[in-house]
Amino acid sequence: MTLSAAVLLVHQASYFFATWIVVFWAGRFLAWLAWSGMADPEGAGRKGPFLAQLLTAFWFLGGAAGKWTAGYWAGEPFHDLFFAHHPYAVYALLRAWLDPEALRVVATWFSRGVVVVETAMAGVAFLPARVASTVSIAAALGMWLSTGDLYDVAGPVIGTALAARILAAAARPEIAGRRER
Protein backbone atom coordinates (compact mmCIF):
# COMPACT_ATOMS: atom_id res chain seq x y z
CA MET A 1 0.00 0.00 0.00
CA THR A 2 2.77 2.42 1.00
CA LEU A 3 4.88 1.51 -2.03
CA SER A 4 1.94 1.88 -4.42
CA ALA A 5 1.06 5.24 -2.87
CA ALA A 6 4.67 6.33 -3.40
CA VAL A 7 4.44 5.33 -7.08
CA LEU A 8 1.11 7.16 -7.48
CA LEU A 9 2.72 10.26 -5.91
CA VAL A 10 5.45 10.44 -8.55
CA HIS A 11 3.51 9.24 -11.61
CA GLN A 12 2.81 11.86 -14.27
CA ALA A 13 -0.96 11.25 -14.28
CA SER A 14 -1.42 11.09 -10.50
CA TYR A 15 1.18 13.21 -8.65
CA PHE A 16 -1.29 16.03 -7.94
CA PHE A 17 -3.61 13.87 -5.76
CA ALA A 18 -3.15 14.79 -2.09
CA THR A 19 -4.82 11.45 -1.34
CA TRP A 20 -1.63 9.50 -1.85
CA ILE A 21 0.51 11.54 0.54
CA VAL A 22 -2.05 10.76 3.25
CA VAL A 23 -2.32 7.08 2.19
CA PHE A 24 1.50 6.81 2.07
CA TRP A 25 1.85 7.81 5.74
CA ALA A 26 -1.31 5.97 6.81
CA GLY A 27 0.17 2.86 5.17
CA ARG A 28 3.32 3.26 7.27
CA PHE A 29 1.14 3.55 10.37
CA LEU A 30 -0.68 0.34 9.33
CA ALA A 31 2.69 -1.40 8.88
CA TRP A 32 3.71 -0.25 12.37
CA LEU A 33 0.45 -1.64 13.78
CA ALA A 34 0.88 -4.96 11.93
CA TRP A 35 4.48 -5.49 13.07
CA SER A 36 5.18 -3.66 16.34
CA GLY A 37 1.55 -3.35 17.42
CA MET A 38 0.75 -7.06 17.06
CA ALA A 39 4.00 -8.03 18.81
CA ASP A 40 3.47 -5.60 21.70
CA PRO A 41 -0.24 -4.67 22.06
CA GLU A 42 0.36 -2.80 25.33
CA GLY A 43 3.01 -0.64 23.67
CA ALA A 44 0.66 -0.03 20.74
CA GLY A 45 -1.99 1.24 23.17
CA ARG A 46 0.51 3.65 24.72
CA LYS A 47 2.33 4.87 21.61
CA GLY A 48 -0.26 4.36 18.84
CA PRO A 49 -2.61 7.25 19.64
CA PHE A 50 0.29 9.72 19.82
CA LEU A 51 1.71 8.47 16.51
CA ALA A 52 -1.73 8.85 14.90
CA GLN A 53 -2.04 12.37 16.34
CA LEU A 54 1.41 13.27 15.00
CA LEU A 55 0.37 12.08 11.53
CA THR A 56 -2.86 14.07 11.64
CA ALA A 57 -0.98 17.18 12.77
CA PHE A 58 1.56 16.67 9.98
CA TRP A 59 -1.13 16.30 7.29
CA PHE A 60 -3.01 19.41 8.35
CA LEU A 61 0.19 21.42 8.79
CA GLY A 62 1.24 20.37 5.28
CA GLY A 63 -2.11 21.56 3.93
CA ALA A 64 -1.82 24.82 5.88
CA ALA A 65 1.77 25.55 4.80
CA GLY A 66 0.71 25.56 1.16
CA LYS A 67 -1.93 28.16 2.00
CA TRP A 68 0.29 30.62 3.88
CA THR A 69 0.18 33.06 0.97
CA ALA A 70 -1.36 36.48 0.42
CA GLY A 71 -3.65 34.97 -2.21
CA TYR A 72 -5.19 32.47 0.19
CA TRP A 73 -5.53 35.14 2.89
CA ALA A 74 -7.47 37.24 0.35
CA GLY A 75 -9.53 34.17 -0.59
CA GLU A 76 -8.75 34.32 -4.32
CA PRO A 77 -8.04 30.59 -5.00
CA PHE A 78 -11.13 29.49 -3.06
CA HIS A 79 -13.26 32.08 -4.83
CA ASP A 80 -12.01 31.15 -8.30
CA LEU A 81 -11.91 27.36 -7.78
CA PHE A 82 -15.03 26.83 -5.70
CA PHE A 83 -17.30 29.79 -4.93
CA ALA A 84 -17.47 31.19 -8.47
CA HIS A 85 -17.65 27.99 -10.55
CA HIS A 86 -17.75 24.71 -8.60
CA PRO A 87 -20.90 22.64 -9.27
CA TYR A 88 -21.07 21.31 -5.65
CA ALA A 89 -24.49 22.08 -4.11
CA VAL A 90 -23.19 24.37 -1.32
CA TYR A 91 -21.46 26.70 -3.79
CA ALA A 92 -24.35 26.58 -6.27
CA LEU A 93 -26.75 27.64 -3.48
CA LEU A 94 -24.42 30.43 -2.33
CA ARG A 95 -24.19 31.73 -5.92
CA ALA A 96 -27.99 31.69 -6.14
CA TRP A 97 -28.45 33.50 -2.79
CA LEU A 98 -25.62 36.05 -2.81
CA ASP A 99 -24.56 38.78 -5.20
CA PRO A 100 -20.97 38.59 -6.56
CA GLU A 101 -19.58 41.10 -4.01
CA ALA A 102 -21.05 39.24 -1.02
CA LEU A 103 -19.83 35.92 -2.49
CA ARG A 104 -16.29 37.32 -2.61
CA VAL A 105 -16.51 38.43 1.04
CA VAL A 106 -17.75 34.96 2.08
CA ALA A 107 -14.93 33.33 0.06
CA THR A 108 -12.34 35.56 1.77
CA TRP A 109 -13.52 34.70 5.28
CA PHE A 110 -13.96 31.02 4.44
CA SER A 111 -10.41 30.92 3.09
CA ARG A 112 -9.04 32.64 6.21
CA GLY A 113 -10.98 30.18 8.34
CA VAL A 114 -9.46 27.25 6.47
CA VAL A 115 -5.92 28.65 6.88
CA VAL A 116 -6.43 29.25 10.62
CA VAL A 117 -8.14 25.89 11.32
CA GLU A 118 -5.58 23.87 9.35
CA THR A 119 -2.72 25.66 11.11
CA ALA A 120 -4.35 25.17 14.51
CA MET A 121 -4.81 21.46 13.76
CA ALA A 122 -1.03 21.09 14.15
CA GLY A 123 -1.74 21.36 17.86
CA VAL A 124 -3.75 18.14 17.77
CA ALA A 125 -0.54 16.27 18.62
CA PHE A 126 -0.59 17.81 22.10
CA LEU A 127 -4.22 17.04 22.98
CA PRO A 128 -5.47 14.04 24.99
CA ALA A 129 -6.12 11.07 22.68
CA ARG A 130 -9.93 11.06 22.78
CA VAL A 131 -10.21 14.84 22.36
CA ALA A 132 -7.68 14.74 19.52
CA SER A 133 -9.65 11.98 17.80
CA THR A 134 -12.92 13.92 18.08
CA VAL A 135 -11.33 17.16 16.84
CA SER A 136 -9.64 15.35 13.92
CA ILE A 137 -12.88 13.66 12.84
CA ALA A 138 -14.77 16.97 13.09
CA ALA A 139 -12.11 18.78 11.00
CA ALA A 140 -12.07 16.00 8.38
CA LEU A 141 -15.87 15.95 8.16
CA GLY A 142 -15.85 19.73 7.80
CA MET A 143 -13.33 19.43 4.97
CA TRP A 144 -15.49 16.75 3.32
CA LEU A 145 -18.76 18.67 3.69
CA SER A 146 -17.27 21.95 2.44
CA THR A 147 -15.83 20.34 -0.70
CA GLY A 148 -17.62 17.09 -1.56
CA ASP A 149 -14.75 15.62 -3.58
CA LEU A 150 -12.28 15.79 -0.69
CA TYR A 151 -13.63 12.47 0.64
CA ASP A 152 -10.39 10.91 -0.61
CA VAL A 153 -8.34 12.93 1.89
CA ALA A 154 -10.94 13.05 4.67
CA GLY A 155 -11.45 9.25 4.66
CA PRO A 156 -7.92 8.22 5.73
CA VAL A 157 -7.79 11.11 8.26
CA ILE A 158 -11.02 9.82 9.85
CA GLY A 159 -9.67 6.23 9.73
CA THR A 160 -6.47 7.30 11.52
CA ALA A 161 -8.45 9.19 14.17
CA LEU A 162 -10.68 6.13 14.72
CA ALA A 163 -7.63 3.87 15.02
CA ALA A 164 -6.16 6.23 17.64
CA ARG A 165 -9.45 6.23 19.53
CA ILE A 166 -9.65 2.41 19.58
CA LEU A 167 -6.05 2.11 20.79
CA ALA A 168 -6.55 4.79 23.45
CA ALA A 169 -9.74 3.13 24.71
CA ALA A 170 -7.91 -0.18 25.04
CA ALA A 171 -4.97 1.40 26.86
CA ARG A 172 -7.16 3.22 29.39
CA PRO A 173 -8.24 0.18 31.54
CA GLU A 174 -4.62 -1.01 31.61
CA ILE A 175 -3.41 2.39 32.84
CA ALA A 176 -6.25 2.56 35.41
CA GLY A 177 -5.40 -0.98 36.59
CA ARG A 178 -1.73 -0.07 36.97
CA ARG A 179 -2.65 3.02 39.07
CA GLU A 180 -4.85 0.92 41.38
CA ARG A 181 -1.96 -1.48 41.99
Binding site: V23, F29, L30, L33, M38, P41, G48, G155, G159, A163
Partner: peptide, 17 residues
Protein backbone atom coordinates in the same frame (compact mmCIF):
# COMPACT_ATOMS: atom_id res chain seq x y z
CA UNK B 1 -7.76 -7.42 19.71
CA UNK B 2 -7.73 -3.59 19.86
CA UNK B 3 -4.70 -3.51 17.54
CA UNK B 4 -6.60 -5.57 14.92
CA UNK B 5 -9.64 -3.31 15.30
CA UNK B 6 -7.52 -0.17 14.92
CA UNK B 7 -5.84 -1.70 11.86
CA UNK B 8 -9.19 -2.59 10.30
CA UNK B 9 -10.68 0.85 11.05
CA UNK B 10 -7.94 2.53 9.05
CA UNK B 11 -7.77 -0.17 6.35
CA UNK B 12 -11.54 0.15 5.73
CA UNK B 13 -11.17 3.91 5.31
CA UNK B 14 -8.33 3.54 2.78
CA UNK B 15 -10.01 0.71 0.89
CA UNK B 16 -13.27 2.71 0.78
CA UNK B 17 -11.46 5.69 -0.71
Amino acid sequence: SPVTRAFLGLAVAICGV
